[in-house]
């Protein structure tokens, strides 16, 4: 089997996901080549053929142009699988490739099992083993699912890809996330609120527990979107990535985007009314309880210590 790995590059940097692509190909025991719209000054550690299109000419975000260049490489390499990260770059580009090649796309692969690819469903509460009916497939990988133990090394054999003009979307630049008031990445204890807190008034329970544990409070995306807490408190893919000594997840079901932001915590305590919530997969302790009853008692006892 031969794979074509599509690495990503943003704001002048090669993104770390290329190592996950390489590791995935290794797990499949597949040969690989790589495609990157990037720069010769920032090459991935990789010993294989790297088809490189100059980002100065092609732009960091220009999906229809990137698609055209990638299709030319597919034509040359004839891979059975085109592999991208399941990221804002990858999930945008992958269906364009799949459609052009008339192939099946398998999104957000978390695991290879008995030679088949496994993807999450229903907020990771279920897993789905899938099989393509087409000879070639386009695959996106869930962030973190194929992180190698150590970063791959090597120097790629660079093959330049001609960049034509074109594209039906104009990319007008980046807007950085607003400067955050709170740097959760340095907190030793974080108590986070999820949708399960039910209403904004209950955020006080989370804040009080965080104070009792001399930590900060955080929140998952639904709480931020509902404007119950400010964006700088968000833990997850589009918020902050944290690694405290203690992470207390209150009413957080454990969507992958949240887990990606906190799974490096040393000790995870989850409080949830659903004992099958996916957060239980990574929690050291899962307390099946109503946080409205448990938190006041726990906070009081901690304050009395």
């Amino acid at each position: 089997m031969k794979t074509l790995l599509v690495a990503e590059y943003r704001e002048g940097k090669l993104l770390g996901t290329s190592s996950e692509l390489i590791n995935f190909a290794a797990q499949l025991g597949a040969e690989s080549a790589m495609f990157l719209v990037g720069s010769e000054g920032a090459l991935p550690g990789y010993s294989g053929k790297l088809y490189l299109a100059d980002v100065e000419q092609a732009g960091e975000f220009n999906p229809s142009l990137h698609k055209q260049m990638l299709l030319e490489v597919v034509e040359k390499e004839q891979p059975q699988m085109v592999v991208l990260p399941h990221s804002s770059y990858g999930w945008d580009l992958a269906p364009r490739i799949a459609m052009a090649l008339k192939t099946a796309q398998i999104s957000e692969v978390v695991e290879v099992k008995d030679g088949n690819l496994v993807v999450p469903s229903c907020n990771s509460k279920l897993r789905r083993q899938v099989k393509a009916t087409t000879a070639v497939t386009v695959v996106t990988l869930q962030g973190g699912a194929f992180t190698p133990a150590e970063d791959p090394s090597g120097t790629p054999e660079v093959i330049k890809v001609e960049v034509a003009a074109g594209g039906d979307i104009e990319f007008l630049g980046y807007e950085e996330a607003a400067e955050t008031g709170v740097d959760l990445s340095k907190a030793e204890v974080i108590v986070s609120a999820g949708r399960g807190i039910g209403k904004p008034e209950n955020l006080a329970l989370i804040e009080n527990l965080a104070k009792a544990l001399k930590g900060e409070y955080g929140a998952s995306r639904p709480v931020i979107d509902a404007e119950w807490a400010e964006h700088s408190r968000q833990v997850g893919t589009t918020g902050q990535t944290v690694s405290p000594k203690l992470y207390v997840a209150c009413g957080i079901s454990g969507a992958i985007q949240h887990l990606a932001g906190m799974k490096k915590s040393e000790f995870v305590l989850a409080i949830n009314t659903d004992k099958d919530a996916p957060i239980g997969e990574i929690a050291d302790v899962l307390v099946v309880a109503d946080l409205k009853q448990l938190l006041p008692v726990l906070t009081e006892k901690l304050n009395a210590l």
């Binding site: 192939t103 393509a132 009916t133 239980g280 899962l286 448990l294």
Partner: peptide
């Protein structure tokens, strides 16, 4: 369809995690 589902199942429990239930004061 170009894709078929071979199997649908809950994720395998990796185990290890302790599950606690009971009275709030005892739990605390």
């Amino acid at each position: 369809s170009l894709l078929e589902t071979l199997q649908m199942a809950p994720p395998e429990k990796k185990g290890g995690g302790l599950v606690l239930e009971g009275d709030p004061a005892d739990l605390a």
